[in-house]
């Protein structure tokens, strides 16, 4: 009887935990998947799939030490598969440059700011795929070993990719 009750409690805890993580980080994961080249509808579906998998994994008794790292790793791998299956050969291009150019001027975004953003955006676009991935994951708050786990590279390689990315972005800043 008590065992059954404890079991129910554990299930509730998993549900609550995953529901809370979903609430907190679904938008971050969704954005990451867009930058990976998934179309919005696919990216949204993929996010939901990732959190369902998280729940299923916990329910099966597998221990997850680092939820954030796990979520982004599974999202990344799943995202790559989804991207490969997308009907269009082309990855999703969010057209950020065009958005930046056409964005209606507002007091918060002075022309100069926009120019700066455009230059920075172009520099980010100019990074290699790995450098960009490392940077985006870093901006989501992941540590080097977690980023390494997502991308299947060593933490020291993450450090090197980030260093190179920083070198390039720094040049844009100082221009």
């Amino acid at each position: 009887m008590w065992e059954l009750l404890r079991q129910e409690e554990a299930v509730d805890t998993f549900e609550d935990r995953v529901a809370q993580l979903y609430e907190e980080s679904r938008n971050d994961v969704y954005r990451y998947l867009l930058t990976l080249g998934l179309y919005p509808a696919r990216a949204q579906e993929a996010v939901q799939e990732v959190f369902l998998r998280l729940y299923s994994t916990l329910r099966k008794g597998e221990a997850i030490e680092n939820y954030k790292g796990w979520i982004f790793r599974v999202a990344h791998n799943h995202g790559l598969k989804v991207r490969a299956r997308q009907h269009s050969e082309e990855s999703f291009d969010p057209g950020l440059e065009a958005s930046l150019r056409s964005e209606a001027p507002n007091p918060e975004h002075q022309l100069l700011d926009r120019e700066r953003q455009l230059a920075f955006h172009n520099a980010v676009e100019g990074l290699s795929e790995q450098q960009r991935r490392c940077l985006f994951l870093r901006l989501e708050g992941l540590h080097y070993p977690e980023i390494g786990a997502v991308l299947g590279i060593s933490p020291s390689a993450v450090g090197e990719f980030l260093r190179r990315a920083m070198m390039r972005l720094r040049r844009v800043r100082s221009e």
Binding site: R31, T35, A41, Q44, F120, H121
Partner: peptide, 12 residues
């Protein structure tokens, strides 16, 4: 300013 503000919102 760019990724959060300008990437398309989830469709649903």
């Amino acid at each position: 300013d760019v990724l959060e503000a300008l990437l398309p919102a989830p469709p649903k």
